[in-house]
Computed example of a mutant assay.
Amino acid sequence: MTACTAQLAQHFDLPPAYLAKQLARLVRAGVLSGTTGPRGGFRLGRPPAQITVLDVVEAIDGPGNPYQCREIRRQGRGALPPQECSERCALAVAMDAAHAAWQGSLRSVSVAELIESLPAEIPERNRRLLTLGAGSD
């Protein structure tokens, strides 16, 4: 089943321009495939078992670690001398470990698993409502 940006925006009550930007990112990452034209729309770019939650998150937010160490230990009146800052600070090390654990957790869950965890009526309800929306445009 394919759904167009307008249908999806209306279905999820999102601004169409915002959703179009996110969908374009997902297409570039191969999570979705898109087709243009009157019968165009979006569908998964790979089988759901081959798409991880991390694939989706990184397609939207990028692959980088959101924590950026500011090296405040080198600033101000209490600044440490450079030779005492040759190793990364303890907070940066802890944040890197947390980010790696978060990535591992999201990498271990597929879109197929998310779908399987939903009550059976939810995917069918969404398909039905999106199909109805397609006919009403």
Rank of each mutant, 00 (worst) to 15 (best):
M1G: 10
A3R: 06
C4A: 14
T5W: 05
A6R: 14
A6H: 11
Q7G: 09
A9E: 05
A9I: 07
H11E: 12
H11W: 12
L14Y: 07
P15A: 15
P15R: 15
P15C: 09
P16Y: 09
P16F: 10
A17F: 09
A17V: 12
A17M: 10
Y18Q: 11
L19I: 06
A20L: 11
A20G: 11
K21E: 13
K21M: 09
Q22T: 06
Q22V: 12
L23F: 04
L26R: 01
L26S: 00
L26H: 02
V27D: 03
V27A: 06
G30Y: 01
G30L: 03
S33M: 10
S33K: 13
G34Q: 14
T35L: 07
T36R: 15
T36F: 06
P38G: 15
G40Q: 11
G40V: 09
G41F: 08
F42C: 02
F42V: 02
R43F: 03
R43L: 10
G45V: 02
G45E: 03
R46E: 07
P47W: 09
P48Y: 01
A49S: 13
Q50N: 10
Q50T: 01
Q50L: 08
I51Q: 01
T52E: 01
T52W: 05
T52D: 01
L54T: 00
L54A: 12
D55V: 06
D55G: 04
V56L: 07
V57I: 14
E58K: 08
E58H: 08
A59R: 05
A59Q: 03
I60E: 05
Y67L: 05
Q68S: 07
Q68D: 05
C69K: 08
R70I: 07
R70T: 11
E71D: 09
E71Q: 15
Q75R: 15
Q75G: 01
Q75W: 10
Q75E: 15
R77K: 13
R77A: 14
G78E: 13
A79G: 05
A79F: 06
L80Q: 12
P81W: 09
P81S: 13
P82M: 03
P82W: 03
E84W: 14
S86G: 03
R88F: 08
R88H: 11
C89Q: 07
C89F: 08
A90R: 15
A90Y: 11
L91C: 10
A92L: 11
A92K: 12
A92S: 13
M95R: 15
M95V: 04
A97P: 00
A97C: 07
H99G: 00
A100F: 04
A100L: 12
A100M: 10
A101R: 15
A101T: 11
S105W: 12
L106A: 06
R107P: 00
R107C: 02
S110V: 01
S110P: 00
A112F: 02
L114T: 04
I115Y: 05
I115A: 11
S117A: 14
L118M: 09
L118W: 08
P119G: 04
P119Q: 05
P119V: 02
A120W: 05
E121T: 02
E124Q: 13
E124F: 05
R125G: 00
R125Y: 08
R125A: 06
R125W: 07
N126C: 07
N126M: 11
R127Q: 09
R127M: 05
R127H: 06
R127S: 05
R128Q: 13
R128K: 12
L130A: 04
L130V: 03
L132M: 14
A134I: 04
S136A: 14
S136C: 11
D137S: 13
D137N: 12
